[in-house]
Design a protein around this nucleic acid. Sequence first.
DNA 1: TTGAAAGCGATACCAC
DNA 2: GTGGTATCGCTTTCAA
Lengths: 319, 319
Amino acid sequence: MSVSTVSKALNDNGRMAADTRERIKTLAAQIGFRPNALAKGLLSNRSFTVGLLTNDTYGRFTLPVMAGISEALVDHGVSVFLCAIEDDPALGKIHVDAMLDKQVDGIIATGKRVDRSLPVDLAGLPVPVVYAFTKGEPGSVTLTSDDRHGATLATEWLKELGRQRLVHITGPREFVSAVERAEAFRTVAGNGAPVLHGVWSEAWGHEAIDRIWKEGGERPDGIFCGNDQIARGVADALRERGARVPGDVSVIGFDNWEIMAAQTRPPLTTIDTNLKELGREAGLMVLALAEGRAIEPGLRRLPCKLVIRDSCGGGRQQN
Amino acid sequence: MSVSTVSKALNDNGRMAADTRERIKTLAAQIGFRPNALAKGLLSNRSFTVGLLTNDTYGRFTLPVMAGISEALVDHGVSVFLCAIEDDPALGKIHVDAMLDKQVDGIIATGKRVDRSLPVDLAGLPVPVVYAFTKGEPGSVTLTSDDRHGATLATEWLKELGRQRLVHITGPREFVSAVERAEAFRTVAGNGAPVLHGVWSEAWGHEAIDRIWKEGGERPDGIFCGNDQIARGVADALRERGARVPGDVSVIGFDNWEIMAAQTRPPLTTIDTNLKELGREAGLMVLALAEGRAIEPGLRRLPCKLVIRDSCGGGRQQN
DNA sequence: TTGAAAGCGATACCAC
DNA sequence: GTGGTATCGCTTTCAA
């Protein structure tokens, strides 16, 4: 039995006796034959491999994105190289070169914010690149979550619950996502609604509440926080001051970072940024590009989703 | 100029005019020539690729381990496939098969606890397997952190600080790591020292303190927690009861999970389990095995490290 | 319907 | 010193 016959049998191409084909297939299965992907790739110029480049140390963004990519691509026989490059351009280059040597079919670049790019130049690479949650070259394909949409969802939810005096406590002005969320917040809550910029930490959540309480004046009954860490700080600070959450104040977070949101007392109602879905789309897009299908370049914003837990109240009447 | 000459020039083997070699190298660099790793691999039976299999969703263990592996292997030109298989045997098999097809030089299996194995059978694979933080086949190479050592470090630190009434609040008895840490705790703190088993959560930390306070009797002045989440719950619960940390009670955690330990009030003194180092060793070990060098099978326990922050006091006199 | 042969990109051996 | 040639495992084209 010749190699070429076997090859055709297993790949269902070429004309041959259905009987022979079956026999070969059964035999192949019996001896557990698995074709060498390296040899295949050498011939087809497809390695069924993509690279994921990230500078997100905690994996807070990378992991869900990775999960989505992997889930979408495993069905296509594609495996994913994970390369954590910190913010080191040299390390970045080493990893990119290693991936190119290994003939990756494409690269997905991912980070922590869409207004900063990774410390590597991915323009003009011989393989397609898709950017997720990080800034791409002009004319590139980029995915991110829709901050305005998420912020709108959050603020509207607070209003729906009857909250009147809304405040937004969020991260630094330097982050476009902070700015966009703040804008959306004001669009819904009213132009005069206060926005406090600080850092993305629990400590800032505490401090912001401290500041608001010290100021005197009317206290908020609904607080939209720029991320779940801030929300956690806020919830703790409120409790310490005797304000009940959600009795007196509704607190809503952003990100749906499970380990943070679920462990807060009370568990946080928050906005899920759909990172896994984002990963899935990114995966399918590099794959499409690798197969020569065209993808409209530009920035795609994926919708967010409200996740109801206990920190806002109003959970009962929802799914 | 023939291909063979070029090959020899670039790989520094074979005899040839130093001048020719130089010329070829310069030219290659100029046109940005990079050899095709697939072709190389086909010939050498080495793909310079390893697979990392994990069922750790949050990446709490996987990420540091991955970072260590990657760091150790990038110098050797090895890239890492990350495969998150949850607890799905079918998914596990798919990923393992995909990796084998791609001719990985070895596989590192990693999980969340050393007394459970992944839902895939990695025995009898044609490539070497190293287990990190997950249970391996009998006679396999396994790495884990030394729970007894870490617990000893923690308990001794509490004693050094002059704490007398020590308590250990930890996870379920079903985890060997919980049991081993508890044993080490008692060895240092005395056989009568109380150990409270619960779950690995903040909520359990709260509850445990609640229980201790309600019981009446002498209250602890030093609490060794089974992980940083429990420690955080404990610290919060103590504060709520007016006990000062570290003034009245020293609290020490386990894991040095940055996002948890650093954000706790006060920031947690804790035990670092050296996961990155563990990853690095695992990486070097698969590599060694892949290159045919022998590695003594068995369970290797890597030492832990005390990380001093504020929750125990005594920080000043240390580095 | 099957099989022989070329070739994918690189390396190693052996003539020249 | 340099270059031809076989080879890795597989797919594809073409002849038998």
